[in-house]
Simulated assay, not measured.
Amino acid sequence: MLRNLWRYRYFILASIRAEMKGRFARSRLGGLWFLLNPLAQALIFSIVLSQVLRARLPDTDVDAAYPIYLLSGLAAWTLFSEILGRSTTIFIEQASVMKKISFPRLCLPVIVWGSALTGHVLLVAAILVVFLFFGHFPGWSILAVPLGIVLISAFAFGLGIILGVLNVFVRDIGQVVAIVLQLWFWLTPIVYPPGIVPESFRWLVEMNPMAPLVGIYQDALLYDRWPQPEALAVPALLAAAAVVFAFALFRRASPELVDAL
């Protein structure tokens, strides 16, 4: 499968470029939409919640601490949810193409991954510009962000392929994923700091593999802290296991994908 992906690398790159261009075709603002959507969410949450939560953000005296915390978490979550959500439905969406053209089917989630990663890099760059307007710029710990990108995208990519294959045979999977992602978002410390979670529910945050992955962004971009290796051990293992299992499942199910579609 990896050999086939390498043979079709130009097809994958061309598809990513075409998707990025098509996303903003006839749009006057173009790539600015990468920034405007998360900024709109951050503005809404900040207006509603910042007055309540500002004093509860620990270990920082930054005036715009809450918007920075929120934007950092939203950036990490957007990468995860886009790869996972789109990979879950990509085989169904491209059913007609899969029936007419012969190419490695694994190219489709790889194109999703590449497109999401390209958009995410642009989003992070735009957010850093916004931080300058807040009078805040991260220190050397910003170099930890690429580690977060790798772990989050690998975890989402593996889960996305698994759920995407299952969704071909059981169409309810796509509907369930949309609901689970909403619940998962609120179980991840993005809108709130983990310290305010009641003791009786704190175990949900501790068992959530996305919590330390989102924390990489928040620690690096707001607190100027490096991630703790022991906190990332379990998410890294889960990401690796998801990718390995996804490839095994895809290899087993790929001969039947087109027939099921």
Rank of each mutant, 00 (worst) to 15 (best):
L147H: 01
L147S: 06
M98Q: 11
F131G: 06
A154T: 11
V145L: 07
A95D: 07
M98S: 13
V150I: 15
S87M: 05
I127K: 02
I127T: 12
V121T: 15
G114K: 07
G119I: 14
F91N: 13
S102I: 14
L123M: 14
G148L: 03
G139T: 09
F131H: 08
L151D: 00
L143F: 15
G135H: 05
I92C: 01
V129L: 14
L128D: 03
G148M: 03
T88Q: 10
L117V: 15
A95F: 09
I142A: 10
L132F: 11
S96V: 13
F155A: 09
P138Q: 02
V121G: 10
V129R: 00
S81G: 02
P138C: 01
V129G: 07
A154F: 05
S153Q: 06
S87T: 06
V129E: 00
T89V: 15
A95S: 14
I152M: 05
V129Y: 01
A125W: 09
S96W: 11
I111F: 00
I90Q: 04
A125Q: 07
I101K: 02
A116L: 07
T78M: 07
I149S: 00
E82L: 12
I111C: 03
F134M: 02
P104F: 06
S87F: 12
F91D: 08
L108W: 10
V129S: 04
F137R: 03
V145D: 02
V110H: 02
V97M: 14
T88P: 08
L132G: 10
L108C: 07
C107R: 03
V124F: 14
S153D: 07
L108M: 09
I101S: 11
G135E: 04
L108V: 15
G139M: 02
S96N: 14
P138N: 01
V121E: 02
L122W: 06
T89G: 01
S141N: 10
R105D: 04
C107G: 05
V150D: 00
I101Y: 13
L79K: 05
I101N: 10
P146L: 08
C107T: 15
L123T: 12
G148S: 01
A144Y: 09
F133W: 14
S96I: 14
S141Y: 06
K99M: 13
F155C: 09
F91W: 03
I111H: 06
F137E: 03
V150L: 07
L123D: 05
S102K: 08
S115R: 13
A154W: 09
S96P: 05
I101R: 06
P104K: 09
T118R: 01
V129C: 06
F137K: 04
L84E: 07
L79Q: 03
L84N: 10
C107I: 15
E82M: 12
T78I: 11
P138F: 03
F133C: 09
G148V: 06
F80H: 08
A126P: 05
F103L: 15
K100D: 12
L143V: 12
A116V: 10
P138E: 01
L128N: 07
L128W: 04
L123Q: 15
L79A: 02
V145A: 03
A125C: 12
V124N: 12
G119S: 04
Q94D: 10
I83F: 09
G114P: 11
R105I: 15
L117D: 02
L108E: 04
A144F: 12
F80R: 11
